[in-house]
Computed example of a mutant assay.
Amino acid sequence: MQKHILVTGGAGYIGSHACKALKAAGYVPVTFDNLATGWQEAVKFGPFEQGDLLDRARLDEVFAKWSPVAVMHFAALSQVGEAVAKPGHYWRVNVGGSLNLIEAAVAAGCQNFVFSSTCATYGDQDGVVLDETTQQRPSNPYGSSKRAIEEILRDFEVAHGLRHVIYRYFNVAGADPEGEVGEFHQPETHLIPLMLDVVSGKRAALTLHGTDYPTPDGTCIRDYVHVSDLVDAHVLGLKWLEDQRDSRVFCLGTGTGFSVREVVNEARVVTNQDVPMNEGPRRPGDAIQLVSGSARAVQELGWTPERSSLKQMIADAWRWHETGHYNK
């Protein structure tokens, strides 16, 4: 019997990789996406249902049609600067849309929920490897909206038995080794694809958003995880729930942070080309340093981040960048 998994945001960067991993694991991923930032060309591994999370009636239709055994929820607005400028928009879309989805899942009897949260729920906590026990104190509306969704999931477990696995992670990079899907946004805001645009001559220079942070080289520090490793963890989380395990939070990262300048220097090595840079002001809401450990995921899920070296992530991203693009 085929097991259908509803993947919200399945036409996006991480969601499309998750659909590929789900198909490889024997599931049928059903992508639910409004294509505001996703790409229909990225939906290659299962059925596609276009719709918006704010449309409860459409969600009910999709649950009735496919009877998914679980939800894997990636769809969200995720730009920190935009969130600071438009907090209402982020609360409405991220929290309101997620509440619709959670209520629709419960109404349909779908009791397993895997949620893509973020280490942005922790805010600025420098010199600390963030783990599941670290206090959450988000410093921008994006992180606050994700923390609120985590709280909704806990409340719905108490009231309705909705079991969940929550993943907190920050910067995701790379592309699947076969090059079937990759990272491509319009407009692009992520460091590595922006940097590779500069390397390939599509942009004149990379702008460093803040060079006066209290870090060794003045640029902010982030933990990066390879997208293929990340979605493997999500499949393990799904199996965790299928095994009737308790709801759980897992952080996903390498425990090692890299500054923006360090990422740029590694790109110069991988591509054997220069990366011209300009210095700009800090972006509102950006944390100084976010580094996430993953000891619990390694020990309890058996997760192994095999491709999450900075060199491998940039090399895989570079391969995709040179060959794969989507078109609206």
Score class of each variant (00 low, 15 high):
residue 3 K to A: 12
residue 3 K to H: 15
residue 4 H to E: 06
residue 10 G to M: 06
residue 19 C to L: 04
residue 19 C to K: 02
residue 22 L to I: 01
residue 23 K to M: 13
residue 26 G to K: 04
residue 30 V to S: 04
residue 35 L to R: 04
residue 37 T to R: 00
residue 40 Q to I: 05
residue 41 E to I: 06
residue 54 L to D: 08
residue 55 D to S: 11
residue 57 A to P: 08
residue 59 L to G: 01
residue 60 D to T: 05
residue 61 E to F: 08
residue 61 E to W: 09
residue 61 E to R: 08
residue 62 V to D: 04
residue 63 F to E: 05
residue 64 A to R: 12
residue 65 K to S: 10
residue 66 W to E: 04
residue 66 W to L: 01
residue 68 P to T: 01
residue 71 V to R: 00
residue 73 H to W: 02
residue 74 F to K: 02
residue 75 A to V: 03
residue 75 A to L: 07
residue 81 G to T: 10
residue 82 E to M: 08
residue 82 E to C: 08
residue 82 E to L: 08
residue 84 V to H: 03
residue 85 A to I: 08
residue 93 V to N: 01
residue 103 E to L: 08
residue 108 A to R: 03
residue 109 G to E: 10
residue 110 C to N: 06
residue 113 F to T: 02
residue 113 F to I: 04
residue 118 T to F: 05
residue 118 T to S: 15
residue 120 A to M: 06
residue 128 V to F: 14
residue 137 R to E: 15
residue 138 P to H: 14
residue 140 N to Y: 11
residue 141 P to S: 11
residue 142 Y to V: 08
residue 143 G to S: 14
residue 143 G to V: 09
residue 147 R to D: 15
residue 147 R to C: 14
residue 154 R to Y: 12
residue 154 R to M: 14
residue 157 E to N: 15
residue 160 H to M: 13
residue 165 V to N: 06
residue 166 I to T: 15
residue 167 Y to H: 13
residue 168 R to E: 08
residue 169 Y to M: 14
residue 169 Y to P: 09
residue 172 V to C: 15
residue 175 A to Q: 10
residue 176 D to I: 04
residue 178 E to F: 11
residue 178 E to R: 11
residue 181 V to S: 08
residue 182 G to N: 09
residue 182 G to A: 13
residue 186 Q to E: 15
residue 187 P to E: 13
residue 188 E to N: 11
residue 189 T to H: 11
residue 200 S to Y: 13
residue 204 A to I: 07
residue 205 A to S: 11
residue 206 L to Q: 02
residue 208 L to I: 12
residue 216 P to C: 03
residue 218 G to N: 07
residue 218 G to P: 07
residue 222 R to E: 02
residue 223 D to C: 06
residue 225 V to L: 11
residue 225 V to I: 11
residue 226 H to W: 02
residue 226 H to I: 02
residue 241 L to F: 09
residue 242 E to I: 13
residue 244 Q to G: 13
residue 247 S to A: 10
residue 248 R to P: 13
residue 249 V to Q: 11
residue 249 V to H: 13
residue 256 T to R: 03
residue 266 E to D: 07
residue 268 R to H: 04
residue 269 V to K: 11
residue 274 D to G: 05
residue 275 V to M: 06
residue 277 M to E: 13
residue 284 P to G: 06
residue 285 G to S: 06
residue 285 G to V: 05
residue 285 G to D: 01
residue 287 A to L: 07
residue 291 V to A: 04
residue 293 G to I: 05
residue 302 G to F: 07
residue 308 S to E: 05
residue 309 S to Q: 03
residue 311 K to Y: 14
residue 312 Q to M: 09
residue 313 M to G: 00
residue 315 A to G: 06
residue 317 A to H: 03
residue 317 A to E: 01
residue 322 E to W: 06
residue 325 H to G: 11
residue 326 Y to F: 12
